[in-house]
Design a protein around this nucleic acid. Structure first.
Lengths: 207, 207
DNA sequence: AATATTGGAGAGTGATACTCTCCAAAAGTC
DNA sequence: GACTTTTGGAGAGTATCACTCTCCAATATT
């Protein structure tokens, strides 16, 4: 298919596709003469993935580029794949307090989790806990543990449903489920909060 | 305290404080003469809240402005407060498919949740589910229900630990816990995913 | 022959979030 | 009381991001 059809199929303007090609977010089509290239289904898929990561997952284009590089990396084994994909998905870790760092280490130990010592998520979690303390709303251990247990249930389900076999399918699934499953989980949490609040304090329904 | 001390206490440059004052993200200090205003602890708190919502919560300044308006709204009762705070926190809802909309409605019904029909989170959730389908990774019902149950555990804990009494403290807590608790939950989920993957496919630890 | 589309590259745009410069008034310092 | 510093206020400038537009010559299509 030509670029115009790719544009229609993926719902992305031609100018934007050209921009993504320039930025290396979409591999070039098969060149057919000097001013013509042919695109295929993989381009449609890739384009939809980029748009979903940006619009729903809230990733920046440079984060998306890192993530795609991870998806396209052929030589990665299942072992360590998830950490690498996460590394591409998340932002730079902040500087954190020793207290929060220890609290995170203790939580991971208490939960019996097997986590690489240098995982950026340790720092990201500690940074978020620091921010909570900074605004005077420290999460107490009881709450934090409830979060950890809920997180583990979700994560176990995620990992259990990961497709195995085709390596690149697996990385893509990791990326998609982590990046787009996040908004799903947070929306569900807000809905459940509204419900819990309605039960406790009134119907919450418009009069 | 003068603006310089406020800047030191909150860790925000004077130029940025002036910008926030102009943009209405920070209430003006008490004017003392034509070129002098006095600031207090409430300004330090507010500034830290703004920075935390932006840096950790990932909110835009205009979203932060809406959230603060909600925090400062005196005339809101506990009933409906949470929905209003959520409305200020989340982005514009997308256009969604009928399938996903029905799926969300069914899930809410099955969970026995009490949610206002017009909650933006219904549309946001449906939009995220549509995005998953669009990239070929539909979440099956089993997974979605596991997410919903985990979300409910977290939400119940959240609501149970909300401070009651001072109304404005309560809204602030809703905002802080929702906006900053999100990153906490997502970081925990990634850590738990890493752990689950390590157990299943290898140690995931560096050799 | 006339019209339309393409790849490629560069320039332009609009939003966001600051950051810098300037000013005159006031406050603190010696 | 002269001098330096700080302040509030407003405007202009800057950096980044994610496009979007314009132009071109080479092809395709009609």
């Amino acid at each position: 298919m030509w670029i115009a059809e790719l544009s229609r199929r993926a719902g992305v303007p031609v100018a934007t596709i050209k921009y993504y090609l320039r930025e290396g977010l979409l591999p070039p089509g098969e060149a057919v003469g000097a001013t013509r290239s042919r695109y295929d289904e993989t381009h449609v898929r890739r384009l939809r993935l980029v748009r979903a990561l940006v619009e729903v997952g809230g990733l920046s284009l440079s984060r998306v580029r890192d993530v795609l590089a991870e998806v396209d990396e052929e030589s990665r084994e299942l072992h360590g794949l998830l950490g690498a994909a996460h590394g591409a998905l998340v932002p730079e870790p902040p500087v954190v307090s020793a207290e929060s760092k220890e609290r995170v280490d203790r939580l991971i130990k208490d939960q019996g989790w097997l986590v690489y010592e240098g995982s950026v998520d340790r720092a990201l979690l500690a940074g978020a806990l620091d921010a909570l303390v900074g605004v005077g709303h420290r999460l107490d251990d009881e709450v934090l543990q409830a979060y950890a247990q809920a997180a583990q249930q979700v994560a176990d389900t995620d990992v259990a449903h990961l497709p195995v076999g085709d390596r690149s399918r697996t990385v893509e699934a990791v990326v998609v489920v982590t990046a787009l499953g996040g908004p799903v989980l947070l929306a569900l949490r807000r809905l459940a909060q509204q419900s819990a609040s309605a039960r406790r304090y009134g119907t919450n329904l418009p009069s």
